[in-house]
Design a protein around this nucleic acid. Sequence first.
DNA 1: GAGTGGTCTAGACCACCCT
DNA 2: GGGTGGTCTAGACCACTCC
Lengths: 231, 231
Amino acid sequence: MVINGWQDVQDEVLRRLQARIWKPGELLPNEADLAAEFGCARTTVNRALQVIADEGLLERRRRGGTRVLVHPTRRATFNISLIRREIEQQGYAYGYRLLSQRHERPPAALRERMQLQPGIRIPHLKALHSADGEAFVLEDRWINVSVVPEAAHIDFRQQSANQWLVENIPFCGGNLALSATHATNVEADLLAVDTGTALFTAERHTRNSAQVTITNVRLLYAPGYQMQLEL
Amino acid sequence: MVINGWQDVQDEVLRRLQARIWKPGELLPNEADLAAEFGCARTTVNRALQVIADEGLLERRRRGGTRVLVHPTRRATFNISLIRREIEQQGYAYGYRLLSQRHERPPAALRERMQLQPGIRIPHLKALHSADGEAFVLEDRWINVSVVPEAAHIDFRQQSANQWLVENIPFCGGNLALSATHATNVEADLLAVDTGTALFTAERHTRNSAQVTITNVRLLYAPGYQMQLEL
DNA sequence: GAGTGGTCTAGACCACCCT
DNA sequence: GGGTGGTCTAGACCACTCC
């Protein structure tokens, strides 16, 4: 066993974890000892262990040492890109049509997350993105005008809100809820499917650094859509 | 502006990115220059830039320098845990019932990913996981018996394959495809819903380090299920 | 109080890859 | 060829937290 770099340390640690040499719940030797054993600098061991901990297999605490997690949690990641790019990368011609753009009162739950006064009206957009002329995804978006005042006066007929927001508004975090829903009459009509068709649905909240929701978007994908995540 | 650690460097770089001081497509100064400007070691700058690049905002290449990505890709992550844990964490009583366990010929596409001989039979399981007695998710799983020979003789009536595999078989990577499907008659029956109901569907391939598929599982979630991802 | 991981530093060498 | 990021080293100090 020759250790050259931090990846070698990582490999060896992973091997010992899967061989149950270090068992779930147990404490690993400290970094200095491991460095001595592997014949490398402590920094190198540190890097390897940090990566493994990030992957969700180890738990590290100052003074508490490095422990093997009992229930390792694997992490799947999904790369969110512009809808336009997603379509074009698959080799289709991208199409976009703004269906409506109005100032309306948001639902109460959303209003709270946006920290807005009751009764206030904010931009509410509906749009359809298409691939090679076929409906691809239906977008239903609210924009927090108190965080993004410019949005109140932009004409989203030419440029999709999706693109404008990504390019102009920095955000800090958010969440994405995925589910399956049945198409309503209106939705079915716009997507050119039967009422009640199963639609893959994504609802996303995007927050700024103060944890205020900047925008909320609900995406209804046409049948056949699959979201791919890597493990 | 006082720079103390790599997080401060990160903050300052992010600030310049969002302020468009460094514009999309542009090259950043090299690490040595930035280190000089910030009054810290190059290692510190390196760490900060690596983290930002991992987040998907920068592209770094040897000799090529560090470039601001034109289309930043945000990454959403989903923590995969045992179905049992997922149910218990929500405060429900977990229930599990094995519906069938047979050796069968896998579909051709799956056989190829598992690198198996034509005609071979491998374990094929169907099971139902429930929460407080209500159907929660239907599991349909194939196991590559050439990679995991032990699986051929295990009785999955007591212990779910989900749990056994996670605890005993190390894996390297895989992918997860999410979609919305309509419940077939049989599926609807097992989940106690109407035929044709929209079901949130996850299909997962898990590979070992040699890129051979270890197991393939299709999960059909009962209506109301939402998968939550963090941005 | 003491042992652990978290991080910084300065210097060094190397792999890569653009010109 | 030469400039860039990738990484290693040895040493140091610090923050946290368990005892």
